[in-house]
């Protein structure tokens, strides 16, 4: 579904990603872990070209998307993204946040969009917040709505960039629950996270990144119980106490 070939990304003189090769298949739940500054968020952001790769190729559903001729907006509709800082639009109500893109891009009529938005809001138990503005919501509510905003586009894959890192501890659970439900429904997911419990229970594969490289890739049980790489061992000993 997503194939990354020889991906490199520099920020000025710093090499953030060094020759990454990886293929994500349909239905997989890839969890990307690693110390901060390891390039995992940059890797994720290269998948939908929020970061332009310095070199290398990103293929999505058989099309090379980091190509000048490629109409990236079309493909981004199929790649939902959830951000650490939620990034809901504060000038729009919750309902407008969710329905703006599908209406604007003529994927749905106003009524259809509203209807599916309400169904999705019901699923996360926030249908009573449809007319509220984001500034009046808690972090957990905002993030669940941000997930719904991405889902209404019917994406083929969902990218999560540290979705729980900006949340108060008591709100992490409600967001993870939505993500677990999504995983159970078979959504292809790429998740950058520090939630090791989530990685273990939901992930089909864990990627361990450090210094711009994928050092280890393994099913979660193997990765958490028998890490091979020294760096991975050191990382796990710090985060799993």
């Amino acid at each position: 579904m997503i194939e990354v070939k020889n991906l490199c990304k520099d920020f000025g003189k710093t090499k953030v990603l060094k020759n990454i090769n990886y293929t994500i298949n349909k239905g997989e739940k890839i969890v990307v872990v690693g110390p901060s500054g390891s390039g995992k968020s940059t890797f994720l952001r290269c998948l939908n070209l929020l970061e332009e790769p310095t070199s290398g190729e990103v293929w999505f559903e058989g099309i090379k998307i980091n190509d000048e001729k490629c109409k990236i907006d079309k493909h981004r509709q199929k790649m939902g993204m959830v951000f650490q800082q939620f990034n809901l639009f504060p000038n729009m109500t919750v309902l407008q946040n969710i329905t703006y893109a599908p209406i604007k891009l003529k994927l749905k009529t106003k009524e259809e969009a509203k209807e599916s938005a309400m169904v999705l809001l019901q699923r996360i138990g926030l249908e009573d917040k449809a007319e509220a503005y984001p500034n009046n919501l808690s972090g957990g509510q905002k993030q669940r709505i941000a997930i719904v905003r991405a889902l209404i586009m019917n994406p083929d894959v969902m990218l999560f960039d540290e979705p729980t890192s900006a949340l108060d501890p008591e709100m992490v659970g409600e967001v993870l629950d939505v993500m677990i439900e999504l995983a159970e429904q078979g959504m292809t997911m790429v998740v950058v996270t520090h939630e090791m419990g989530f990685a273990r229970s939901v992930g089909t594969k864990v990627l361990f990144m450090d210094e711009g490289k994928i050092l280890e890739q393994a099913p979660p049980n193997e990765f958490f119980d028998f890490p091979k790489h020294e760096r991975a061992k050191a990382f796990l000993s710090k985060v799993l106490k």
Binding site: R76, K78, M79, G80, F83, A101
Partner: peptide
């Protein structure tokens, strides 16, 4: 980024 990631031009 949120706008563009939704496929908005």
């Amino acid at each position: 980024e949120a706008g563009r990631s939704l496929g908005l031009p």
